[in-house]
Structure formats: C-alpha cells, structure tokens
Design a protein around this nucleic acid. Structure first.
Lengths: 151, 151
DNA sequence: CAAAATTATATTGCGCGCAATCTAATTCGG
DNA sequence: CCGAATTAGATTGCGCGCAATATAATTTTG
C-alpha cells in the first residue's frame, strides 16, 4: 500500500552500510593475512597503539564489543604473539591487555596498510573523513535508541 | 614516523562503517526477532519482494554473498516457511528461490519496520539517502580494487 | 559423442558477534 | 564482619561470512 519503492534493496541505507562493511573486510583481508591478523584483531591493535594497557572492558567500550567476542579474540591475539594478558594484581577480576614488542612493531606496517586502503577507497581524504563523521553520528544515534536503561 | 594520528581509531572510516553496521544489526534485531528472522535473512526477503524467483547465484550477486553463506541461510529461511527452494527443471544445477504466502505477507510488516529504523537513524531522509549513495559508491570502488581478473 | 572444462550449489572449517549463562572477585548493606 | 548484590571476564550455542573443497549438471572441444 505505502511506498513499495522504499523497500527496494538499493534504497536501504542499512544495506549500503552492511555491504560497505563487507567490502572493507574483503579489502583488508589480503593486507592483513601476511601478518596472521584478522580485521577485528587489527582494530584491537589500533586501539592499543593509541593507549596501551587497557582492560578487556575498556577495549570493549572502545570497539563496542562484549567479552563474548573479545575473550576468544584476545586469546588468539595472545597466541599469535601480539599482546599479553595479565590479571590485575589489585583487582583480580580485571585482565590487562598490553602490546608485546611484536605488537608494537606491527604499528610500523600499519601506515602502509592505511595508505593502500586509502587508495582502494578512492582517497579523497577529506570526503572520506566527512563520510566517517556522518556514519559515526548515525551509529551513535542508533545506539542511543537501543533500549538504554529503560528500567 | 609518519602521522600516527591517522592511525587513531576514530579517524578510521573503516571503523565507522564496521561500527555502524553492527549498530544497525542491533537495531534491527528486536524488530525482526518476533518474526524469527535475522537481518541477512531479511535482506534476502527484501531482494525477493523486488523480484521473486531468483536463483541462488542471482541472490548472491544482489547481496554480494556467496553460496557458502547463502545455502545454509536459505535452508533456514525455508525451514521457517518464508521461501521455497526448487530445482530448475531445465538446468538442474540451479535452485530457484521463491516466496511462500508467508514470505509475501511479511512484506506488509516491512513498512512498519522501515519506519522504526528511520526513526532510530535520525530520519532526515534525504541526508540518509545521500549517505547511502556515498557508501554505495565507496563499496563499489573497494570491490573494484579486489584483484579482479588480474590473471 | 566422449573427455575436459565450466558452472551452480552444497559442505566444512574457522573467526567473529551476540545472547545467555557461569564463575570468581569485589563492593555494599546491615 | 557476613551475606547479598554487583562487576569482570570466560564459556556455550547459534548464525553469519568466507576460503577451500566437493559434487553434480551442463557446455565445450577435440
């Protein structure tokens, strides 16, 4: 009855985002494969390069992921030698995630990877930043709607 | 050595997209749960509402997914009664995906879901379309770089 | 027309992502 | 100070996504 055209796949912003996310993933994969890293693992490293020594919880807040995702991912990152996991001596519930030398060294490679992504993405750096800002604002609005503490 | 600031998480367009995609997923989930649908399953229905009776391959091209993802997903959609899978009589390799009455009826609900998403996303419909168009162009550029037939 | 190549779909294995549940440590209330 | 609530993280189960492989049907080639 209402505008069926609005239901068209290529009109859906959510599909554009869904699809762009997969496209990025596929673009990153061959760049990260040589290092034995996945894209989410690479995001963890990005976050640690900014601020080494986060708890799992802090990482989860930065990446919007929970422990169900992070715990096994971090174990794999530890197994491949990029990070170390140590229980906090003061509060034994917390696990501190820190970069190993290998993890810190990986940062040198990241600039090259970023450049290749920039090239694949079309590289008009300012436009891309603008797009990123719009998306971040959008994601924040979406998260804001999510049954906050409606208790 | 180079601009470390460019490696900051919140400067990464790819992270904005990654994160927005998850935010959309989480927004859709409570809207689709009552129907026993997941978000990728809902995308399949969107595509079929536009054009019923696609092959698996055609669906894969519309959604940028391969049979490894679609085959089990379509089996689940069949199990929950939204679609039917029938071998093409002429070319027995192909499987035709068609909507069941339940699948067609679901379209009526979709308008309401779309409105709720629109509201959560902030609803400036034109801006959102603009954003969607930019993203689609970006995803196409990314896909264009992906080792085409460099053979 | 038979063998080889191609095509469409299915299966397996692995790594997310998330809900639900569990455990252990800390904090709060009385 | 003790039991109850809270908190941090881990585990389980399920559904994607995707690479790699398998299978069966069709097309191409000699």
């Amino acid at each position: 009855m209402a505008d069926d055209a609005n239901l068209a796949l290529d009109r859906q912003l959510c599909f554009a985002i869904y699809s762009a996310a997969h496209a990025f993933n596929r673009t990153y994969k061959p760049l990260l494969d040589p290092y034995g890293l996945t894209y989410p693992q690479y995001l963890v490293l990005l976050s640690l390069w900014q601020d080494d020594g986060k708890t799992v919880k802090a990482l989860g807040e930065a990446l919007h992921l929970d422990s169900g995702t992070l715990s096994p991912l971090l174990k794999r990152l530890e197994a491949s030698g990029y990070i170390a996991r140590t229980r906090d001596r003061v509060d034994e519930r917390q696990v501190l995630i820190t970069l190993t030398p290998k993890g810190r060294k990986m940062k040198d490679e990241a600039h090259g990877i970023l450049m290749q992504i920039g090239r694949a993405a079309g590289c008009a750096a300012d436009d891309l930043h603008q797009l990123g800002a719009s998306l971040q604002a959008l994601a924040d609005r979406l998260r804001g709607q999510q049954t906050p503490d409606t208790v």
